[in-house]
Simulated scan of single mutants.
Amino acid sequence: MLAPTHMVAGQAAFVALSLAVGHAPSWPEACLAAGAALLPDLDKRHGVVGRLFPWLSEPLEYRFGHRTLTHSLLACIVLAMLLWPLLPHGLWLAVVAGYTSHPVADMMTPAGVGWFWPARWRCVLPGNERYRMRAMGWGELAFAAILAVATIPLLGMAQSKPGTGSVIAAAIGDIATARTRYDAEKGNNRWSLRLEGRDNLTLADVNGNYPIIGPWKAAGFLIDTEGGPQTVCRSGDCNWYAESAVAVKGERQETLTRHIDAEHTSPAALMNALKPLEASGEVYLIGSLTARGIAAQAPSVAVSGDDVSLSYAEPRVIESWGARPLRDLLITVQVRHSPGDTVPKLALSEETAGVIPAELRPWLHEDDKFSRDR
């Protein structure tokens, strides 16, 4: 097949795969898929890519022959494995889809390809030679035109409603698969969880579509509901049990973080510091601090003695902390906002009034009134 046909086939394969897995394709990614679709012809010294890298194409063609090693299933698998830890999800999809489309399209020619190389078999598609396409023939021209026309509506569907076309994810409905996809693509979009399940305590159905706040443990989610944050997983350790779960990518957003590393402050000062950030978007607190008498608010606020752990806690939880001093703050403030919006810097005043110095704490009895009041 000709290079333009392979480029069109590479773009079509990438868009179709993006729609299947719920990825919103971009034009740079589509262009990359078109370029990757030419790479298997590195084993042809007179091809478009072969002429760019003669030092590689000539020995490949001489040693292995055309449509063998670089057109094989083995090459596609090795490429996908090598690039998986190196490329972002969208770029990885583009390269793998574009590259793999080339040998699949070449199967539709009379000569076929060595798909199962190093075996000598030549794979063709379809089996009847009368229906295969010859290079530069009318069949190849019609094939390229059909792919180009079909790609346009598929691209619109994948870009306008990312996640709703996640055919594979929807078919599986496994929360571990949903979590894997969320971990790979989170950050630049809002996410929701299309859930079918039940409450582990009341056994009531909890089917619905819920905004995802963040990940929970190894394979679960923290979601926003009318009754407050709830944990979802496929075990009895969470609030809700997921029988079927699909992570759905929504509209674009940006995520920015600010950091708090302070020895002393107060709940009032912390709330005042967070107010400008709340005006910019959704704010969540992740980290730890030390304070007396703070009540746990599962699942966002966990308390063990004086140690307080925050897991995607909203700023409103601070309102119930009263005026008690806060110490040893190590908190990441996550701000999710609309693209292009400016997020102000975080200015936290370090308050020491009423805070017992660390050197004196070992000398005070835990039940000492002075200790409790301070």
Rank of each mutant, 00 (worst) to 15 (best):
A150T: 04
D261G: 02
P118Q: 14
P118D: 14
L42K: 03
I294C: 06
I286T: 10
L277G: 12
G50C: 10
R122P: 11
Y99D: 04
V78P: 02
S160W: 05
G22Y: 14
Q230K: 15
M1Y: 11
T290D: 14
D237N: 15
V78W: 02
L329R: 06
A135G: 12
N128L: 14
D368I: 00
K369L: 08
M133Q: 06
M1T: 13
N272G: 05
D373M: 10
I213Y: 08
S26M: 00
L256E: 13
I213C: 10
L277Q: 13
Y99I: 01
I77M: 13
A24F: 04
N209G: 04
T290R: 14
A247W: 13
P362E: 12
T5N: 02
I212Y: 12
Q159M: 14
P215Q: 05
S166E: 04
T352Q: 06
K345E: 15
W117R: 11
I146L: 15
A184H: 01
C76F: 03
H102E: 05
T70V: 06
N189R: 15
R132V: 05
R372L: 14
R181A: 10
I286K: 03
S266F: 02
G114A: 15
G165K: 02
G156Q: 15
L83R: 03
K369Q: 07
R194G: 01
T109G: 09
L17K: 00
G293I: 03
L285G: 05
W84A: 08
V78M: 02
W27R: 10
E254M: 10
E254S: 09
S309Q: 12
P299Q: 11
C76E: 09
F64D: 06
M136I: 04
T180R: 12
G35A: 12
D106H: 02
P299D: 11
L310V: 04
W240A: 12
C238L: 11
P4H: 03
F221G: 00
M108Y: 02
K345W: 03
P344E: 03
P110M: 08
V308T: 11
L39Y: 09
H259D: 15
G340C: 13
G197D: 09
L2C: 06
R194Y: 05
T342A: 13
E185P: 01
E185L: 09
R132G: 09
S309W: 03
H264N: 09
A148V: 00
Q297G: 09
A12S: 15
E314P: 00
T342N: 08
H23Q: 14
L329I: 10
